[in-house]
């Protein structure tokens, strides 16, 4: 048999992707190793982040040089990251499916093309601009009008009542993330709807189903893997988003949200905002602890993927 040149070069090229991730993981693990040893497991479930007295003299603790009073615990970051991204995905999925259906099924191609530009353009806006829009437009609107009304009307629903806060918080961060990830889901979905075998749609229509019913009962089930796949991608994007979250989340430190209006902080935003101060730590433990956060964030992304795959697997078994 001929040597499969195409196949081998394909595999060689493709392997650069996992290799770059492995390089990143290796780097993060080696780099944060002292912090992992120093912090042990309570790093994950304590709400206690303090770079310590950066102007003091380093002290020895458990065999490591650290700044006095330095403590690293990130439970509040894990909660903030997962909550904001999860809410964003729950809100983004119906919006994205709605937009994709309207553009793919609801109108003629010639009209859909310019309108789909809107949705695609939402993806082209830099995340800093989302952040600016978030704090100039969204935060005052939500904080002064929408949230007080919501908290009043929904006071009986857990996590929706209580103090409506200032507008900077969990729900605002989720809403900005939602708008950011919708185009990612919607664009892929639209292409997939367009590419679905037309015979399937025609068969459904000939049974007397309306276009919407065809979509709901015939097309969407066929696209289940696409929907879940692209949702994971979007969730990953939300988990890793930095600037926009930094600007609207209220950046809570060392406490947990008690309702959806409370300030939170996400791991990616926290790394970005703390890196500069951490660089001032002469023992380097602060930067190492930040890279340990990055490692934990990677592990969360792994967990999200495993769960999504389990869902797919169970759906197939059934």
């Amino acid at each position: 048999m001929k040597f499969p040149i195409f196949r081998s070069s394909l595999v060689a090229m493709a392997s650069l992707l996992p290799l770059s991730l492995l390089a990143l993981i290796t780097f993060l693990t080696i780099y944060s190793w002292p912090a992992i040893q120093y912090n042990q497991f309570h790093f994950l479930w304590t709400n206690d982040w303090d770079l310590g007295n950066l102007y003091g003299d380093p002290v020895m603790e458990h065999g490591f040089q650290v700044m006095p009073h330095a403590r690293y615990g990130i439970w509040f970051l894990i909660v903030g990251t997962v909550a904001s991204s999860f809410i964003a995905m729950v809100l983004a999925l119906p919006l994205a499916i709605g937009a994709a259906v309207l553009l793919a099924e609801g109108m003629r191609k010639s009209r859909a093309a310019p309108l789909s530009l809107f949705v695609d353009l939402l993806a082209s806006i830099p995340s800093v601009v989302y952040g600016l829009w978030g704090y100039a437009v969204l935060v005052p609107l939500l904080g002064q009008h929408v949230y007080p009304a919501m908290a009043h009307a929904l006071s009986f629903v857990p996590f929706f009542g209580g103090a409506p806060g200032s507008g900077y918080g969990l729900l605002t961060a989720s809403l900005v993330l939602t708008i950011m990830i919708v185009p990612l889901i919607s664009a892929t979905l639209r292409e997939s709807i367009n590419m679905t075998d037309p015979a399937l749609k025609e068969a459904g229509r000939s049974l007397g189903l309306s276009r919407l019913e065809v979509f709901w009962h015939v097309v969407l089930p066929k696209l289940r893997t696409v929907v879940i796949g692209v949702s994971i991608l979007a969730l990953g994007r939300a988990l890793g988003e930095t600037m926009a979250v930094l600007m609207v989340s209220g950046n809570a430190l060392n406490y947990l949200p008690n309702n959806i209006y409370t300030p939170i902080s996400s791991m990616a935003a926290f790394i970005a905002s703390q890196l500069d101060s951490a660089l001032q730590d002469p023992t380097n433990m602060a930067v190492q602890a930040l890279s340990e956060i990055a490692l934990v964030l990677l592990l969360i992304a792994v967990a999200v993927n495993v769960i999504a795959r389990l869902i797919l697997w169970m759906a197939r078994v059934r």
């Binding site: 303090d50 770079l51 600007m247 209220g250 950046n251 809570a252 430190l253 060392n254 902080s265």
Partner: peptide, 19 residues
């Protein structure tokens, strides 16, 4: 708490961190 370019701010209900 002490002084530094970043400190461990006490959790004040409603308090905000800005960028």
């Amino acid at each position: 708490i002490g002084y530094s370019t970043t400190v461990s701010w006490p959790a004040v209900p409603g308090g905000i961190g800005a960028e």
